[in-house]
Simulated scan of single mutants.
Amino acid sequence: MIILDCADAFDTWRQQARWLLSHQINPDQVSWSVQQDADLFASDTDYPDEPGPFRARIPLELLELLQNAAQFCGDQRWTLLYEVLWRVSHGDRTAMLAGDKLGSELHRRLKQVSREAHHLHAFLRFVALPVLDNAEDVAAKAALLEMSCLPEYVAWHEPAHDILRTASEHFIGRMGRHRWMIATPKDGVFYDGKQLIHQPVCPEAWQSLARNADDPHGNLWLTYYSHIFNPARLNPKVMQGHLPARFWKNLPEGPLIPALISEARTGGQRDGQAREIAERRGKVIRGKPAVPSPAADTNQAP
Rank of each mutant, 00 (worst) to 15 (best):
C73W: 01
C73L: 01
G74W: 00
G74M: 00
G74A: 00
D75I: 02
D75R: 15
D75T: 03
D75Y: 00
Q76Y: 04
Q76D: 08
R77H: 03
R77A: 01
R77E: 01
W78L: 10
W78N: 01
W78D: 01
T79C: 11
T79N: 14
L80P: 00
L80S: 08
L80Y: 01
L80W: 07
L80I: 11
L81N: 09
L81V: 10
Y82R: 10
Y82E: 04
Y82S: 01
E83W: 09
E83I: 03
V84D: 00
V84Q: 05
V84F: 05
V84A: 04
V84W: 04
V84N: 06
L85F: 06
L85E: 01
L85N: 13
W86I: 06
W86Y: 10
W86L: 04
W86D: 03
W86C: 05
R87T: 02
R87E: 05
V88K: 14
V88H: 09
V88R: 14
V88L: 13
V88Q: 05
S89P: 01
S89W: 07
S89V: 04
S89L: 09
H90K: 04
H90D: 08
H90M: 09
G91E: 12
G91I: 02
G91W: 11
D92F: 07
D92L: 13
D92T: 10
R93H: 10
R93Y: 05
R93A: 14
R93D: 15
R93K: 14
T94S: 15
T94E: 15
T94A: 15
A95N: 10
A95C: 03
A95W: 03
A95Y: 04
M96K: 08
M96D: 08
L97V: 09
L97E: 15
L97F: 06
L97H: 13
G99T: 11
G99D: 07
G99K: 10
G99W: 05
G99A: 14
D100T: 09
D100F: 03
K101C: 14
K101W: 06
L102T: 07
L102R: 03
G103A: 09
G103V: 03
S104P: 01
S104I: 05
E105M: 11
E105Q: 10
E105N: 08
E105R: 06
L106M: 07
L106I: 02
L106S: 07
H107P: 10
H107F: 13
H107G: 07
H107N: 05
R108A: 11
R108W: 03
R109M: 11
R109W: 06
R109D: 12
R109F: 14
L110D: 12
K111I: 11
K111H: 12
Q112G: 07
Q112P: 15
